[in-house]
């Protein structure tokens, strides 16, 4: 008999497993095509998802691009800085 979780329980689990997140901020320099390309290349996003995240950065000023442990997020932030994107890490809202 399959065990089914309520969505709220799943959200709780996710919050526990993924307490940190990587945020990419808008800047006046980086090209939309480049930001999309970096998201595809580094995070393995589909073109569609990468474009959606890029537009969030462009229009809302920021986008959450990954979540996980502190160490994982530090790796992602460092990689974004390698690509010249402005990224920070922060605690997930949970």
């Amino acid at each position: 008999m399959p065990v089914e979780f309520e969505q709220s329980e799943l959200d709780d689990l996710t919050a526990v497993d993924r307490p940190w997140q990587t945020v990419v901020w808008n800047d006046p320099v980086n090209l939309m095509s480049y930001v999309t390309f970096v998201f595809q290349q580094y995070f393995g996003f589909s073109k569609k998802k990468a474009e959606k995240k890029m537009l969030e950065v462009h229009q809302d000023g920021r986008s959450i691009v990954s979540s996980g442990s502190r160490e994982e997020m530090e790796r992602d932030v460092q990689a974004m800085h390698e690509y010249g994107l402005w990224a920070t890490l922060e605690k997930s809202d949970g």
């Binding site: 460092q78 800085h81 402005w86 990224a87 920070t88």
Partner: peptide
């Protein structure tokens, strides 16, 4: 400073 921005704003 722009090439190496702070990783934590808070």
């Amino acid at each position: 400073a722009r090439l190496f921005p702070p990783a934590d704003r808070e």
